[in-house]
Structure formats: C-alpha cells, structure tokens
C-alpha cells in the first residue's frame, strides 16, 4: 500500500491557489522529493500531509487513513522536520528530545534512552546538556532531525532539511537520511538544492504554481528533458552567427549559449573548427538544467 496517496489535492488561501489539483503517490521505503521555485506549493503539500493544514478539496491518504479525519493517528506515526527550526530555547538538547517525546505519550525511561541514542546517531552527544541556543546552525538542524525521530516514525517529512548548512553538515545529514531509508523508513523532502535531490531522491516531482510539471527518477528526468550532455560557450555575436550557419539548435541564457546534445565531441569539434571558439565547456546535463528548463529563469519572490 502507498504510504501517501493524493488525488486531485487542492489548497486555496483566499484567492490564491497554492496547490492546484495534484496527484502523487509515495511508496514505502523510498525517498521522494518535491522540487520547485519559491511559492510553488511544496511546503503547503507537506503541511497537508502532516495534518496541520486542511485541504480545500481532493483526497489525501496517509498510511491509508484520511488526513482530515485521523490526524492524531497519522501524526503518531510520522516525524516532521519543519523548514524553520523550532526547537525549544528554554531547554538543553537532551530535554528538547524528552519534552517532545511526552507529546507522543512516550514513557519517560524509554524517551531518555531514545534521546541518548539519537543524540549519538546525529553526533550531538557532546552537546547533550548545553542550552540549545549555543549550538551552531548545523547542530540545531541535526537536533531537529533527531527530535523528529523520537517516535520511531515510519514516515519522515523534511522541509528543506539542509537549508543554510555548510558542506560538511550537509554530507552528514545526507548520510543519515540514506541510513534511515535503509532501515525501511519512508522519507519525503522538499529542497532547493538540486544536487541534493539528485543524490538522495529515488523519485521526485517538480512543481510550479501549485501544479506538478514532471515526475520520475532524477536520471530519467535528466535524460528525458535535458539530454546527456551540455556544451556551453560565451554568447558573442560571432558565436551565435556561426551556430546559426551550422544549423545547431542552441539556447541563450544571458551571456552564455547552451547546446543540448547526446554527442558532445562532434559538436565541440565542429564548433572549434568552423567558429574558432574559445571558452567551450562540455559537462553532463544535470537536474538543474531540467529544473530551469521547466520552470524558467525568471526570479520568483
């Protein structure tokens, strides 16, 4: 059975349609990603899944239960890492976990054991008894993830899990999330970091303006929408004229041109010979190319 299944899910705030009739299913044991520019509706979807936001229409089932009518039962079995850290500043790292465990009705002794295990798992044992406010950004984020695991969730929801963290902290978190998947936990995450999505997600959707544009594995999406390789060069008038004469399909983004291709060597040598190009780069197509192609390059505020 699907861990989450949404059909024609819609959420409206006044006149603004934040989520516009989307369908998706999350399977047991996978990492499922939601990508999209700011305001695409990702966070709203997360909030509906963990039952703090009510849908306007459509169907939403989590663990086979209706999110509208069984919020307590659903929330008992999932963990939430919100976009904004909301640890309790009045307490130490350890107490943040044990106080949170009480909200699930977890016995004190069990909660204390579990809190120490999780502090160890997230490499925070040294900070067990220090006030949370003295922790670094990466430590706070790890503490929030540890907190979300206090109830041994079957489903972990992460809204921008590594936002604003340094590379070391991000790699540690990725490692832990992959470990959780290996233990059978299902993970649903939103992210703006496309490298993160490409590394972690088994499947993902790209959303824009409340709608799902595409769905698939990172590899499939890249292959389908961006080809295998990208040739880039400076967008000088000479280069553009040359490409046009050669009949090569290209796109211009600001001061660079891009050619999507499956045969980069051929294109490059052709360009080098006939156009005497400088500053030509060849690279693998990435999820970022798919993302920008589908959602455009206009700034979203």
């Amino acid at each position: 059975m699907d861990v989450i299944s949404a059909t024609a899910l819609r959420k409206r705030f006044g006149n603004l349609v934040a989520v516009d009739g989307i369908n998706f299913s999350v399977y047991e044991g996978e990492i499922f990603g939601f990508l999209g520019p700011n305001g695409a509706g990702k966070t709203t979807v997360m909030k509906m899944v963990h039952c703090v936001s009510r849908r306007t229409s459509g169907d939403l089932f989590v663990f086979g239960m209706d999110a509208e009518s069984h919020p307590r039962e659903i929330k008992q079995r999932l963990g939430v890492v919100p976009q904004e850290n909301n640890h309790d500043p009045d307490f130490s790292a350890f107490m943040n976990l044990t106080v949170y465990a009480r909200y699930f009705g977890i016995q004190k002794r069990l909660a204390e054991e579990r809190a120490d295990e999780l502090l160890d798992f997230m490499q925070l044992s040294e900070k067990r008894d220090v006030p949370v406010e003295t922790l670094s950004g990466g430590m706070k984020r790890r503490l929030i993830i540890a907190r979300a695991l206090m109830n041994n969730p079957e489903l972990l929801i992460l809204d921008e899990p590594t936002i604003g963290l340094d590379p070391q902290a991000r790699h540690l978190i990725w490692e832990k999330l992959r470990h959780l998947r290996s233990t059978g936990c299902t993970l649903v995450m939103t992210t703006h970091y496309l490298d993160e999505a490409a590394r972690l997600c088994d499947r993902l959707v790209i959303m824009d303006q409340g709608k799902i544009l595409v769905e698939g594995s990172p590899k499939e999406l890249v292959r389908e929408h961006a080809g295998t390789d990208i040739v880039e060069a400076n967008a000088t008038p000479d280069v553009i004229a040359c490409l046009e004469t050669a009949g090569v399909v290209f796109e211009t983004f600001g001061d660079i041109i891009q050619v999507q291709t499956g045969t980069p060597q051929k294109i490059v040598s052709a360009l080098m010979e006939s156009c005497r190009l400088e500053n030509v780069t060849v690279r693998r197509a990435t999820l970022e190319d798919v993302f920008l192609k589908l959602t455009g390059r206009t700034l979203r505020e």
Binding site: V52, P82, N86, D88, Y100, F104, G105, N151
Partner: peptide, 11 residues
C-alpha cells in the same frame, strides 16, 4: 519560538 507549531506537528 514556534513552540505551538512544533506541538501540533505531534499527535
């Protein structure tokens, strides 16, 4: 502190 938000994400 968003303490209420943290609480209502639990049961």
């Amino acid at each position: 502190q968003k303490t209420f938000d943290a609480m209502i994400a639990t049961p």
